[in-house]
Amino acid sequence: MFSLSDALPADKSALYETLAAQARSLIEGETDAIANAANFASLVFNSLEGLNWAGFYFFDGTELVVGPFQGKPACVRIPLGKGVCGTAAKTRETQVVPDVHAFAGHIACDSASQSEIVVPLVAADGTLIGVWDVDSPHLARFDDVDAKGMVELCRVFVEFGWHKAKVA
């Protein structure tokens, strides 16, 4: 088992590799998907610098609904195609937004957020599960290394924290 107090690597790629291993260790034996999502959000939020929100929006068949997260209260429902989260869900493509104020249709849940990265969560059969959303109060906080790392973290979550678990 890991500990959040363990030293994390300074190299960003190595940091994401460590976080992916920690996430897998944290969630793979747990059968409750919501508990896994809560612990996953806490792990990422408390391990990466420069974040002000990290969490899930799950697809209910019609729209995205806020799930477990760390940070200030969030928008509860987001239509597909609206804002960064809705765009990621609709296109099923990771969205890296250096300046959320320049993103057409951005939904401002927290006025302190300046940049955002959103990764769609898609099951092996192509079913949309939802999105993983991370915000920062800093402009251009996320880059290609973050995108690659977040996609890998989300792969771990979908494989070990969602599909090997149940939703109560």
Rank of each mutant, 00 (worst) to 15 (best):
A20C: 15
I129F: 07
S47F: 07
V76Y: 13
V66Q: 01
A104Q: 09
A14T: 14
V134T: 04
S113H: 08
R77W: 02
L4E: 12
D146S: 01
G55Q: 14
Q22H: 10
P9G: 02
D11T: 09
L4F: 15
V44P: 13
D125Q: 10
L80F: 08
F59D: 09
K166G: 10
A35L: 10
P98N: 04
S25D: 14
V122L: 00
L19C: 08
S13E: 12
F142K: 07
R92E: 07
E159K: 11
L80W: 10
E93Q: 14
G55C: 11
V119C: 05
C85Q: 05
V118F: 07
V100E: 06
E159G: 06
F56H: 06
E63H: 03
R24I: 03
R141I: 04
G149C: 02
I27M: 04
F142Q: 11
S115L: 10
F157W: 03
P137L: 01
E30M: 01
F45R: 06
N52E: 07
C75Y: 00
G105H: 03
Q114H: 01
F2E: 08
C75N: 09
A14C: 05
D110N: 15
L19D: 03
L4T: 08
A33H: 13
D143I: 09
C75H: 00
A21S: 13
A41Y: 09
I107M: 09
K90T: 02
E116V: 11
D32F: 10
A168P: 14
L19R: 03
V96F: 02
